[in-house]
Write a protein that binds this DNA or RNA. Structure first.
Lengths: 172, 172
DNA sequence: GCCAGTTATGCAAACCTTTTGCAATTCAGG
DNA sequence: CCTGAATTGCAAAAGGTTTGCATAACTGGC
């Protein structure tokens, strides 16, 4: 599995780019290969994810779809399937709710996030620590197929401002 | 569950050392300071955690306590309190269940784990990537008070063996 | 030591996210 | 277009975690 060793997507988030039809074709191909069906809900979910630069919860996905178009259970099932098919990537922000992001063609979707602990704003982080560290850890303990999950948490500029104002107000 | 639970953890860490009475005194001091009470359940939980080198779930904690000594709800409440008091540290292995580890005196408990995705064996990892990366990320995006959560996942040596045997058997 | 007042606990019910059983529906290939 | 397999919706269940409330336990002051 490829990692994030020397990527340098500066700050650009390829996520906001448009990959017009590509998803559908890729979807079709990948699904067909596994004897899976191309259904309305599945297409709609991928379409929706394509427009979102950040991970979405299943509830958010449902809310983003046309009213009543898709049952929550179907979304859960779809996400499992899409994840297994590596069309989406699952992220865990530590709040007990899974989030999913579209994986773009040719990428493996491995990256991290910086999440505001106050307002839950999300910034995509494309850099990662050196691969050597992971390799060293794997080797030292004899583990294989080692991967990692990494997320950053902090307070975003806006919330810092808010906090500051709140303090001033209180001080008066 | 614990096929590989108590194996040689070669590079054992400070976590397996004994800090005899220290916890109690520290506990008492910290609790008193916050007008909290030193109760049986709370002491028992810390005692139990002191003997465990790896993070425990609330259920495991309850199971490790004398039969019927403590309600699950009490454990949940205790862990919240102990976490806020920085006597324990919460970890998230991505399986939707919180785990807690004792924080030893003078430490902040920040470290990571390497978890076997097959048998759930855990190895403590004391190293971390360079602080500079985190600082750079924080600065670039204007975030403050940035921290991170990082866990490694892979297949432990024993489970690699098991898988190998299974393959051979099948091949015959 | 004992009391009063506050903090904790146990128990049961509630909450949330996620999973699952099952009958009805939809899709793909012939 | 038809048929069988895959998928969906709905409702119920399963986990983990939280919460309301009456009862029990702890602490500081007498």
């Amino acid at each position: 599995m490829s990692k994030c060793s020397q990527r340098h997507h500066k700050h650009s988030h390829s996520h906001s780019c448009n990959h017009p039809q590509s998803d559908l074709s890729e979807l079709t191909a990948k699904l067909r290969k596994n004897a899976r069906k191309i259904t309305g809900p599945r297409q709609a979910i991928l379409d929706l994810l394509r427009q979102h630069p950040h991970p979405m919860t299943n509830k958010e996905i449902q809310a983003g779809l046309p009213e009543g178009m898709c049952d929550l259970a179907t979304i859960y099932r779809s996400m499992h399937m899409l994840e297994e098919m590596e069309l989406v990537k699952r992220f865990d922000f530590g709040d007990g709710t899974a989030r999913f992001e579209l994986v773009h063609e040719g990428e493996d979707g491995h990256h991290h996030h910086l999440i505001c602990t106050v307002c839950a704003d999300v910034v995509e982080i494309d850099e990662c620590f050196q691969q050597e560290l992971e390799d060293a850890i794997a080797k030292r303990h004899g583990y294989q197929a080692v991967t990692h999950k990494l997320e950053f948490f902090g307070v975003c500029p806006e919330c810092q401002e808010d906090a500051k104002k709140a303090r001033e107000k209180k001080g008066k």
